[in-house]
Amino acid sequence: MIPGWLWILAYTLIGLGVLLGLLRAFLGPKTPDRLVAVDALVTITMGLMVLLGLWYRRGIYLDIALIYGALGFIATLAIARYLEGGL
């Protein structure tokens, strides 16, 4: 079993990561800063979804993290392509 303090540590770290990512996404002076912040937020969210799937003990919840990880990449790719001048 996972001890209680480990849950508290994990949730606290994820909360701190979300806070810092949101701060950079709002304050970032240029668009690439915001883009990297949103990409980091997608990764942190994936971790949160896997953690909550373990918390609720349901296997289907891992599929959402899988799909989000596979498709959250497309948005980053499209915006990077736009900044480069393609698309």
Partner: peptide, 30 residues
């Protein structure tokens, strides 16, 4: 800056997905 608006819109959908997830609706979250 409309491009910044498009980038930050992703955060709204991200939080909406987490909320659907926590409210026990995995199909809607997918």
């Amino acid at each position: 800056d409309l491009l910044a608006a498009v980038v930050v819109t992703a955060i709204i959908s991200l939080v909406a997905a987490i909320l659907f997830y926590v409210l026990q609706a995995p199909d809607v979250a997918i």
